[in-house]
Structure formats: C-alpha cells, structure tokens
Design a protein around this nucleic acid. Structure first.
Lengths: 191, 191
DNA sequence: GCATATTTTGAGTGGCCGATCAAACTTTGC
DNA sequence: GCAAAGTTTGATCGGCCACTCAAAATATGC
C-alpha cells in the first residue's frame, strides 16, 4: 500500500486508468501495459502498489458493484418504483461504472469464479430487495421472489442491450416494463 | 476446404471440438491448442482447413444463431406465445448452443465487431418478429416495437441469469413474464 | 501401380501477456 | 542535512498465444 504522496497519487491514477479501460475496452483490452501507459508509469511501479493485475481490476469492480446501491439494504422503505428508478439512474448517470458492472457480470461469470460469485451475491441481494418491495409487509413468498427475479432480469436484459449499443434508450424502454399490472413509467417519481 | 475424406472428417472434428469448448470454457478457453488437442490434430492440420481460429469460431457461432430460429422469418403466423415458447425451447433443449449464443453476444459484443454486428442484426430481427406478433395485422407501431424490445430483453435477461448459474429454472420464471397484461404461462401452448 | 493432389506432422516463428528485480531516485521524519 | 523508507525505472523473464512451413505420409483417379 502506498505510504508516501507519490505512491498515493500513482495508486489513484492506476485505479482511474483501470476503470476507464474496463469501460472502454472490456476485460480483454485492460492489459497491464494499457493500464500502465494510461497511468503514465512502468510495470514495476504498478507491482510496487498492487500484487497482481487482478487486484486492481477487482478493486474497480468492487467499487462499481457498491456504486449500484448507494444506500445499504434496509435503510429505507423501498418501493418497486424507487428500486427501478435507482437502477435506471445507475445506468444513465454512471454509464462508465454501469458498463464495468455488466461486463464483469457476464465476462467474469463465464471464466472467473471470484467475480461470478461476487456478482451473484449482489444479484440475489437485489432480487430479495425487489421481492420485499413486492411483498409490502411480511416476508416475500415464492411467487413474489419469482416476479422479482423476472423484473430484475428485465432490467438486466435492457441494460445488456444498452451495453451492446450505447445509443439504446434505456429510459424510454423502461416505460414499457410491466410492474404489478401497471407500467413502470407511471410509477417513477419525479426527480 | 477439405477435398479428401480425411480432411472432411477432420473438419467436422474441429467444428465439434470448437463448439464443445465454447460451451464449456467460453471464448477464453477456446484456444487453438485446446481445439487441436480435443480434435486430436496438430495446428498445421487446422490451418490446412481453416484460415484462422476466428473462422472456426464464427462458423460455430453462426450455426448457433441459426439454431435459435429453426424456421425462417415470415414462414408462419407467429404468435407471441409461440415466439416465447421457441425461445424457451432453445434454452432448455439446446443448452450448449444457447450458452455459445449468449456468451458470444456479450463477449464478442464488447471487443469483436463482427460478432457484435452479427448478434445485433439477429436481435433486431427477433424484436421485429415479436413486434409483428404484438401488432397482429399491419405494421407494428412505435409502442409495439418498444414492448417487443422489453419482452426480448426480459428473455435475454433471464437467459443470462441461467448462463451464470445453470441450475436457474428458466421455465418457472417464464411463467411470471407479463405479456399483454397476461402471464406467459397461460399462453404457452401444450407441446 | 503410378502420378497427382491433399493431408498431417514436427519444429519452428514472433509477439504479447503478466510478472520480477536490482539499482537509481525521491520523499519523509527527525 | 541525513538516514531510513518508499518509489520509479529499465531490463528482463518464462509462458502461452495465434500462426507458418517444409517435408513426410496418405488418399484419390486413372
């Protein structure tokens, strides 16, 4: 870990460079050389601060995952509309982080176990949260868990579509997502 | 291209090995060495029949994409229920091909342009087909196109979820997918 | 069975990957 | 200003990647 000022600044530049590359070029494009070139350092400096390339990538991914839900679970009476809106804000207001999150979700899930596990844990947590909102009072039943999984699946599906082509209008399509018989658009509170 | 019998058999073994590896180990795990080892040949034989590794991968992917929709567009009055059921059958009955299809969709989409373009073209074609089914007679309007995109997005989202964990029950969750105000389950015809 | 075309092999190529390390340099606390 | 601790550099490592090629082996048509 960095102790002196130069090291602290370098560490920050490495994290920034890694994040930008993950969003722009995906996991394949995020090579050690690319990170170092963008951060303006040599490989040796990188390994003075990080023990491996994966450490830097995981740091960025972890931050991206945490950025999805700013306030922790249970810290407020979530409604479905609020949860959907939070997802939409994540996509539209933090596109770089969102791209990292989704890329790692699928990419990491296919090959790397650590990333897949991390993403799945977070996914399940989110589904529980959606299910709780569907249930209102009391614990969600099986039907509500399934409906929550489908709703989160829809959001993820549209988000993947957006990753494939960034000009895909996530918000517009969100208005056609059915929630409890109504459409999401009508439920989204004004910002 | 193969002209003699040994070459024809080798070509088939290469395609089979490539497909198996794509499904098992993803794009990263599908190295030239892995393909050749599984096919029981040397690299030189591979390049006698294929001009590049990508050529073999693309052949498999193309076949996987074509396998999604067995009968070509316009060859029958598709209903939404039929289209959803076709997607579900693809996932549940051809899991290997489905995994390849979805992996390439996201993986290839991020780095490789040829695969991304191919997947997107196919995706848009599918959305048009869903939209036409929603519209019934006449050309689909904007609203129907958006609803079709959301519905296909939901299917993709659930499929991605299944790729992440194969024990995810795609069919059960399909019953909770809202279609035109009703649930998909009620519309799915008996097989 | 022979000439020709194809296929297979084995031994390479260069290139990029992540990672290492000693030596020079810089920052920091005192 | 000095010593100790941290940082940067430049050269370098072995390994795996996709790919090549001449030469040996095999298939095919006649």
């Amino acid at each position: 870990m960095a102790r002196y000022q130069p090291g602290i600044r370098t560490e920050a530049r490495i994290i920034a460079a890694t994040g930008e590359l993950l969003a722009e070029a995906g996991l394949d494009g995020t090579t050690l050389k690319a990170i170092c070139d963008r951060a303006g350092i040599k490989a040796g400096s990188f390994y003075n601060l990080f023990s491996s390339k994966d450490e830097a990538v995981l740091r960025v991914v972890r931050e991206a995952i945490n950025a999805v839900d700013p306030h922790p679970e249970g810290s407020g009476p979530d409604t479905i509309a609020e949860l959907v809106e939070a997802y939409a804000r994540f996509i539209t207001e933090q596109p770089v982080v969102a791209r990292i999150y989704l890329q790692i979700a699928v990419r990491g899930g296919l090959t790397d176990n650590a990333m897949a596990a991390r993403f799945l844990r977070h996914h399940e947590q989110r589904v529980r949260r959606f299910a709780a909102a569907l249930a209102g009072d009391g614990a969600p039943d099986r039907s509500e868990l399934i409906r929550a999984e489908v709703l989160v699946g829809t959001l993820n599906g549209l988000a993947f579509r957006w990753v494939l082509r960034p000009d895909f209008d996530f918000r517009t399509h969100l208005t056609a997502v059915p929630i409890d018989g109504r459409l999401a658009a009508g439920d989204v509170p004004a910002r």
